[in-house]
Design a protein around this nucleic acid. Structure first.
Lengths: 105, 105
DNA sequence: ACACCTATATCACTTTATGATATATTCCCA
DNA sequence: TGGGAATATATCATAAAGTGATATAGGTGT
């Protein structure tokens, strides 16, 4: 896939979690909890992606971070990217649902 | 990400297209058209993924294929995988939307 | 004291995705 | 009628992404 800046699934999850200030470990826990353990992002993926999102300036190191916990939050740019991606994902779902429905008939 | 069998975005697109019998080129065109050119899956990705889906038995070579056009279709197993994945994707979207909404307040 | 949870980090490897390119057929129209 | 555009499938070599394993260290409770 590609062309524009579509987010990978993992990036999408992490950015969705960062609509509120959260630190890495909290993000992992949140995703695991909200998906009932179906989706797991381990530390390797987590911190790899965090690094990428930082360089892309889609997230930033939020105040309230101490040496132990680094708290991140979406930048304005990041929020827009997330919203853009959300639209595309809805379109994807629409495509699949239409297809599945039509196949039933 | 991972744990269970979540589909990659590209796999999801292709499988969504294969709720009806379609050949590779038609899948590429469909995706490009329905997303207004935002998403493009080139031949390399296309045929790589087709191959994987075949070995996984999520799609099969459909009747009506001649030597020139190979037409594929979802297997029952594939349809279930797609439906399963669809649920997860809806959940993802829910998570993101809730987060974005709450952040506005 | 020590076991356990929280928290971040990286290395080495696997899996996925893709640009470039090749090849062949069919369609149209000048 | 011949040649360019569109259709169609395929692969190679590389780049990008994801992840298991592992390391390190501060907290907390008992």
């Amino acid at each position: 896939m590609k062309k524009s800046e579509q987010l990978t699934d993992s990036m999408f999850y992490i950015m969705a979690a960062l609509t509120k200030p959260r630190h890495g470990y909290a993000i992992m826990s949140l995703i695991e909890e909200t998906t009932g353990g179906v989706i797991t992002i381990g530390p390797a993926s987590m911190y790899t992606i965090i690094k990428k999102l930082l360089t892309q300036e889609w997230i930033y190191l939020h105040d309230g971070s101490d040496s132990r916990r680094k708290t991140y939050l979406l930048t304005e740019k990041g929020r827009k990217a997330l919203e853009e991606d959300l639209k595309l994902r809805k379109q994807m779902i629409q495509l699949a649902e239409t297809g599945l429905k039509e196949a039933e008939e």
